[in-house]
Amino acid sequence: MTAESMTGRETGTTLVKRGLAEMLKGGVIMDVVTPEQAKIAEDSGAAAVMALERVPADIRRDGGVARMSDPEMITGIQEAVTIPVMAKARIGHFVEAQILEALDVDYIDESEVLTPADEAHHIDKWAFTVPFVCGATNLGEALRRIAEGACMIRSKGEAGTGNIVEAVRHLRSIIGDVRKITQADSAELFDWAKRLQAPLPLVREVAETGWLPVPLFCAGGISTPADAGLVMQLGAEAVFVGSGIFKSSDPAPRAKAIVEAATNHRDPHILAKVSRGLGEPMPGLEIDGLDTRLADRGW
């Protein structure tokens, strides 16, 4: 972007939308269901909060259809904190996204944690001024979401389980393929595009830059400072913590510890210090025992 290409004030440009994701790097985005929890998150050093009615662990337990949250609770959380507030829309539910944009949320998560509204299409995210984050389990899925206008990708993991294994699988898959593509020759890139079911120009961009065109964050299963350190060392640029904080026995110290772990993820002495005496983490679930795999949602 150069000044010549700017004509007066422009909102909603790709640079402005991806720019906020850049500002969240190295930080922790926390799921909160009340203004009080949002305050705890902010006091603990969260870079942003995700406002929703139920954390993924409760959505999983309750079953039924999970939808966008009540605007009243989203507004209540916006009024309680000064950090960015994100909210979730169902996959393909562009009217929920329009409502969230009207509420002036800072980021929309088109999320597999809610029940999908469309079995074939995601939201056309270019049509919005507010930026979107989308989940991905592999590089092809990430590049398809970016082609649709996503300005941030988060590896999905398996939300609401407190089990980090799926997050690690997805991160390794995405970043591993990025590394392979940087080694591919120009003819092989056509095959990569075909195999990934992703647009060739984006595959070429990955080959040239060695990274996704947007920041890559990690979600789904992070419940300890060590988990945050693990995914950051694997290459995630920031972390989302859903149920992991407010389903633990003592949320505030755990939230602060995960924030410090994200920043100091390469320093085992600091990780050891912040991991002490945090009480019980959220109860975890084995992936093989799940009735519903949220990460399978998304096309």
């Binding site: 700017m6 422009e10 909102t11 960015p84 949320v105 507010v130």
Partner: peptide, 16 residues
């Protein structure tokens, strides 16, 4: 003033 220009929808680019 923090966030004095508004929330993300008001974030912008402009020649300076």
């Amino acid at each position: 003033r923090r966030n004095g220009y508004g929330r993300q929808a008001d974030s912008f680019g402009a020649p300076v």
